[in-house]
Each structure stands twice: as C-alpha cells, then as structure tokens.
Amino acid sequence: MSLFDWFANRQKSSPAPQAQPERDIADGLWTKCESCGALTYTKDLQTNLMVCLECDHHMRVFSDERIHQLIDDGTWSGLDEDLVACDPLKFKDRKAYCERLQDYQEKTGLRDAVQTGTGLIEGLPLALGVMDFRFMGGSMGSVVGEKLTRLIEKGTQERCPVIIVCASGGARMQEGMLSLMQMAKTSAALERHRAHNFLYIPILTHPTTGGVTASFAMLGDMILAEPRATIGFAGRRVVEQTLREKLPDDFQTAEYLLDHGFVDAIVPRPQLKATLARLIRIHQPLPKVSDMPTSQINPAAEHVSP
C-alpha cells in the first residue's frame, strides 16, 4: 500500500486528525511547527518547502530535500561520495569518534556532513554543496573541507558558479587542528575561483556558526540568508558568558546581519531557487563582441535601409 492509499483509507475510517496528533506526528503524516505549534499535513508542508503555512517559520531541511528543492529534476550528479572520515587522532570523549561516525552514518544514510555535486538550476549549470546539520551538527572536518574544496575547484575548472548551502556548528573538534585548517583550504580554493571572476554565493541557513562563518560562509560575492536563521561566529551562550549581560533578542539572526551589512538579502525558501537563477543570469558573462552577429551589436542596424 502506498503512503497515499494509506492516507486515503485512514481519512475514511479514522476520527479527525487533531484527536490523535501524537501518533500521527510519530508517523510523519503531520508535522508540528516548532515555532507556532500549528499542525500541518507533512505533504502540504513539503509542497511549501517545509515553511510553516501558519507562521512562515522555516523548518530544517536536510541535504537530499534541499537538492531536490533547488536542482532541476534529473540533472543532479553527486561528487566525491566515496570520501569518508578516518579518525586520525583516535579521538574519544564520552564516546569514540569512530563509533560516533558510524552511528551518524547509519542514522542519516550519509557518509559525512556535506553533499556536493553539479546540476542545473532553471537550466543554468552550477556546482552545489549542501551541508547537512543532522550529521554531527554539520561540523567541518577533513571530509567536509576536502569535498567543498574539490567542489570549488570543479567550479573553477568548469567555469561555473558555486553555491554552498551552509548549516553548521563550525569546525569538528574530533579532528582537532585538521578541522581548523579546512577553513584555510576552502578559502584558498575560493580565492582561485574568485580570481577568474566566477560567481560564488553562500546561502546561510539555520544555524551557520563558528569556523564555517569565519571562512566560506562569509566569502560570497553575494550572501543570501534564510529568514530567522542563526548566523554568528561565537555561540550566543559564549558571548553571554563573556559579557555577563543579556543580548538583544534578534542578536545573530539573519535580520541582524542584514541590518549590520553582512548579508545581501534574506530570501524566503519558496523564492530561493528563482532568486539564485536570476542572480546567476544577471552575472553571466556577456558573449564577446567579436562573437556576436553584427545585428546583435547594433540592433538598430537591421532597420536602416540601404
């Protein structure tokens, strides 16, 4: 029985959905908005790209869904999916890092915290990286750094725009200084991409903090953010502790960064794909004058009678 059939049957026989919300939430049929508490059919919510129909709250979306939302159907081609972390420090806190990795791999079906690949967006080619917050808080270790660097290098080779959807708590502590150096590595690749005047747009989603903010998230030619996303360098609690005073409510939100000049625009998720395509089109290099037929250089010429 397909989910749709099951749903249809259920509607015939069962009482009103609100009567048993807990079970249905568990089934994934209904989703409760963590901001306003409204219950929405998950399907309707997905059609609205996981933005609450009642209060516009942007719920988290993970990498597969984000790719589906942004990339034209059937054009996605994943890169470097065979890279995996290998616990170089033999790190163990309350749990061994290698076990932690295995758990997250099983839980998410991902190998690490970013998916990268190429595809089309409204027919325009681009290199896209999507961080996945489910996998160890989207933290950046060697694999995330390497995959993003290769993605940016691919963008440079293919002369196409690079887009990175950021969602990360920062550098992955379990790989120590190897993680910190990924900030420099990704920035180096962006420097080369930029030197060719190719376009790079990071999209800051909830949350984008720490070493990711202090590297590729802030290096965009243009920087877009999702409404109400938390974006900052130091964690809010850290700042509160150092200052011992209450911070403004909107501190480190996308809106706060917009006010202070660090993002170009806040784009609601349903408009994100069209906005990206529009920006890419505006920045596409014009064909060289010598490549154009005469009529295009001076359209008026066509109307001049001999």
Binding site: E191, A214, A217, M218, G232, F233, A234, T242
Partner: peptide, 26 residues
C-alpha cells in the same frame, strides 16, 4: 581566541577572519 563579544559579532568577526584567510593566499 578571537574576541567573542557583542561588538565583535556586530562588526563581523567571522567576515574579518574569513577575508584574511582568502587574501593571504593572493
């Protein structure tokens, strides 16, 4: 560490560090 204060965030601590990382390669 880099300073974690209200003003540091307001004036773009992340952006300032990120820019240095990129520019030092050129």
């Amino acid at each position: 560490a880099a300073w974690a204060g209200l003003e540091a965030e307001q004036y773009g601590q992340g952006e300032a560090i990120a820019r240095n990382l990129r520019e030092m390669f050129q």
